[in-house]
Design a protein around this nucleic acid. Structure first.
Length: 596
RNA sequence: GGAGCUGUGGUGUAGCGGUUAACAUGCCGGCCUGUCACGCCGGAGAUCGCGGGUUCAAUUCCCGUCAGCUCCGCCA
């Protein structure tokens, strides 16, 4: 550990052979005690690691008696001499294994109950129990390393963006609920009864206002809140690296973000990233990979087989094509020998993903094994083999129908059937030109695909009124190995365009003013062109630590039901608290609450 | 809102329509001067998540419920 202003002496895990002869004072937790009767070993742990303490009954009677009372996780202060171990007693598994500390003084600073699980790496304990005692879980070295990794990454990011001329600015946590988007967490106001703050889903509007304020380059390690159901990679509160720049367009922003990723990979993993990252339009991503966040660590691209399908006698394919749909294929290498049951399961899966059905062909050394091959002439089968590059032993899966559905279904099957061995290289990708709107079938109206402040693509402005669903936006996503790391856009900076988009989203002039007057007014006072992006810090850290769930890289995460097993939040409040807020609770939730 | 999986000493597991509920580890006590997952001997510790039902009998079968995890919907 480098010198620091605190001038801290070495920690337990930092002592080495060259410290032999040194008198040290150590603080830490008792990891383990090995009592040999007249000789007692204690492994002392602090955040730097473990060192062995030795107590000898012959040389220190009273001290030895105290040492015998030590138990797991007792907190102690010891003074002693670092001594080299006899070569026969060196423990190569420990970094401090060449030495040990002969204890001369021992003070028990605090006792501990027997912990519910071992404080060590690689334990197999229910996450339930670990979250209930999260402070003990975090005491484990692997979790300290996770916290440390997050800290280092955030520090690198801050320094990097500082170097790029960004200003870190905090925006309000108590803000205004806005329509659309995720469900808001609401905070009742005491001073304005019946009114509510909302916790920010992102600092979106504020960062745009900071551009209006002439900041030009803003960033924030921003906590965001969304009251939606959880997943392994979704928590109700999470952290974004939120950025926004004025004047300079998308290219500059991409370069800044790419530079940030390159910096993290260089400083943390010691490897260079190939820059710039490849790009793909949303349309291309959907057509080739059936996903707006394609995992490029493997191939298995979707292949359009509409042309040979049109010539075939297979009615389902022909009907789909006549209705303006497509027939697309997914080639699964080496899966041609799949059993009937495996194939049936794939069909079921496809149906669960929204397909009407799923056809398959297995290429064999001679010909095809397939229930639908009989509808295809040999020439057409050859054509399909050519298009899909199917080799003997490969399996082809076909989806027919509406293009969007086919892409979705085959895209999911592609992930489901992905090879076990994936490329070890990180595969970054910019996905650009997302659609501006998507159609909400339930509400029978347009929704913003990204958010309502995203600028339409310049080339598609003329389509806004006539064919809004065909309008591309200036939104983009950063994808890493099939995970959406973040998304952003060039924003609308002209008031008339913003109003037009609001109108298309079903917001009247009056409603727009009611909800967003503060933003619209800013448009009138020289709002510069601007754009930005928000990257999911939790997902990024999880990538670097190799964790599947972002719970692992959040100090105090919540369960899938949004409860905190440590504190018991959320919890009922005192009646007088509700009274002050003018709130009456209609009916309490089911009994139980989080288990703690 | 929906689906699947899980729930047995502190922890991790086994088990089965009738058991003294088993094993490992941890814990407690004893012995032990070179261990490092120390070892040896002994001991304590479980109303089998909760509620109901079927049954002569339920930890075991059924239903419900709670909690956790994963996924779908949802997440501009």
């Amino acid at each position: 550990m480098p010198d620091n202003p605190a001038g801290d002496p070495p920690g337990c895990g930092e002592l080495r052979a060259e410290d032999a002869g040194r008198e040290v004072t150590l603080y830490g937790w008792v990891q383990r005690r090995r009592d040999h009767g007249g000789l007692l070993f204690v492994d002392l742990r602090d955040r730097t690691g473990i060192v062995q303490l030795v107590f000898d009954s012959e040389s220190s009677g009273e001290l030895f008696d105290v040492a015998e009372t030590l138990r797991s996780e007792y907190v102690v202060k010891v003074g002693g001499e670092v001594v080299r171990r006899d070569p026969a007693n060196v423990n190569p598994a420990l970094k401090t294994g060449e030495i040990e500390v002969r204890v001369k003084s021992l003070e028990i600073l605090n006792r501990s109950k027997t912990p519910p699980f071992y404080i060590e790496d690689g334990i197999q304990v229910d996450e339930n129990v670990r979250l209930r005692y999260r402070y003990l879980d975090l005491r484990r070295p692997e979790n300290y390393r996770r916290l440390e990794m997050r800290h280092r990454m955030v520090k690198l990011i801050r320094d990097y963006l500082d170097g790029c001329g960004f200003l870190e600015i905090e925006t309000p946590m108590l803000t205004r609920s806005t329509p659309e988007g995720a469900r808001d967490f609401l905070v009742p106001s005491r001073t304005s009864r019946g009114s509510f703050y909302a916790l920010p889903q992102s600092p979106q509007l504020f960062k745009q206002l900071l551009m209006a304020a002439g900041v030009q380059r803003y960033f924030q390690i921003a906590r965001c809140f969304r009251d939606e159901d959880l997943r392994a990679d979704r928590q109700p509160e999470f952290t974004q690296i939120d950025m926004e720049i004025s004047f300079l367009g998308r290219e500059r922003l991409f370069a800044i973000v790419e530079g940030m990723m390159a910096c993290l990979f260089r400083e943390i993993l010691g490897r260079e990233l190939a820059l710039p990252f490849p790009r793909m339009t949303y349309r291309e991503a959907m057509e080739r990979f059936g996903s707006d966040k394609p995992d490029l660590r493997f191939g298995m691209e979707l292949v359009d087989c509409s042309e040979p399908a049109r010539e075939s006698e297979f009615k389902i394919f022909r009907d789909a094509l006549e209705k303006g749909g497509v027939v697309k294929a997914l080639r699964v290498p080496g899966k041609g020998g799949a059993s009937r049951k495996e194939l049936d399961d794939l069909v079921k899966l496809a149906v669960a993903f929204g397909a009407g059905g799923l056809a398959w062909m297995a290429r064999q050394e001679e010909g095809w094994r397939s229930p639908i091959a009989k509808f295809f002439s040999p020439a057409l089968l050859d054509r399909i083999g050519e298009l899909t590059e199917a080799a003997p032993g490969d399996l082809l899966l076909f989806a027919a129908g509406e293009a969007a559905v086919c892409h979705e279904v085959l895209g999911r099957l592609r992930l489901h059937l992905a090879p076990e061995e994936l490329s070890p290289e990180p595969h970054f990708l910019w996905v650009v030109d997302f659609p501006l709107f998507e159609y909400d079938a339930a509400e029978k109206r347009l929704n913003a695909a990204h958010h309502p402040f995203t600028a339409p693509h310049e080339d598609d402005l003329h389509l806004l009124e006539t064919e809004p669903l065909a309008v591309r936006s200036q939104a983009y996503d950063l994808v890493l190995n099939g995970v959406e790391l973040g998304s952003g856009s060039t924003r609308i900076h002209r008031r008339e365009v913003q109003m037009q988009v609001f109108n298309l989203l079903g917001l009247s002039e009056a409603e727009a003013m009611e909800k967003f007057s503060f933003l619209l007014e800013a448009f009138d006072y020289g709002l510069p062109p601007h754009g930005g992006i928000a990257l999911g810090l939790d997902r990024l850290v999880a990538f670097f630590t190799g964790d599947e769930s972002i719970r692992q890289v959040i100090a105090f995460p919540k369960t899938a039901a949004g409860s905190c097993l440590l504190t018991g939040a959320p919890a009922p409040v005192e009646p007088h608290q509700l009274q002050e807020l003018g709130i009456a609770v209609k009916s309490a939730a089911k009994d139980g609450g989080p288990a703690r």
